[in-house]
Amino acid sequence: MSRVRRDRDSSRKIWIVVVVAVSVFCLIFFAARGRFTVPLSSRLVTTVMAPFQGVTSWVGNQIQYVSSNVWEIITVHRQNKMLRNEVEQLRVQNSQANEFASENARLRMLLGYKQAARQFDLVVGRVIGREAATWTSMIIIDRGTNDGVNKDMAVVTEQGLVGNVVEAYTSSSKVELLLDPRSAVGTIVQRAESRVAGIVEGNPGDEMTPRMVNISRNADIVEGDEIVTSGFGGIYPKGIAVGKVKAIENDEGGLLKYAVLTTAVDFQKLEDIAVIVNSREAPPTPLTPPVQTPGTESSVNPDDTAALGAEGATK
């Protein structure tokens, strides 16, 4: 009897659950379509819950704050190590980047010179060593006979003359600098009114200031004059900047004087150079017609001008 009653109770319970579930299921759709709203429920529950939620959230935030601080303290040593490591790496990278930037700037300048100096065939190289001698000034470059570099070729930078190749090997060469006491470069004063010739040689007393010697006492040379190669001697092509006159001194003999020069090239910072493997006469600058007075323009074209010039030369 009791089992029958229990079964009936159980089935009744299931029916109640099913009815409630179906009702709730329908309720969901009514509520979603806005046809049913539970009066005050949301506002009431939210209002009642808000203070508790606020307190819990505050406590949670405090716990998180404390735990994150504790964790930071625990990990600070390891983090410090990692950061130091990172700083070291970044320093190395930074240094490399600076090096590349500086190399880039130098090569750009050299490239600019190479494009400007069309009368020269240049082989660009790099200084790979400096001879460690007190009285002489030599450098070693990474270009040799394989690259077309030979003995007695002039070495320059975009600033001016560096020296000449004294020994050429297959993939490297020795360059005697302008500062070497053994070097002798035929030069002239660039100023048009002067054009005084002399020989620039290294000064054993002060390596950084070579001297232009063999200048007569009454020669027209003043401080600040630009000195360029004269082209005499065959090693150095004409017109390469050598330096600027810093001071004029009387020679010990009394008949001659010499000029102390500041070199055009900064030999302290010599890293990239170019070897002149071939040189020719600089092409003449193209003729530009003079500005004509408005109203008197002639219609002579450049070809006619050239023809007239040639005719004049023949006469």
């Binding site: 659950v17 709730v24 979603a32 949301s42 009431l44 529950v45």
Partner: peptide, 24 residues
């Protein structure tokens, strides 16, 4: 049912959704 009512009323979701699932 109680948990669902609490959750639905407080969270502002479709009313009845959590009641239905949690009841089952």
């Amino acid at each position: 049912f109680m948990a669902g009512v609490l959750q639905d009323a407080a969270s502002g979701t479709f009313f009845g959704m959590n009641i239905f699932s949690k009841m089952i």
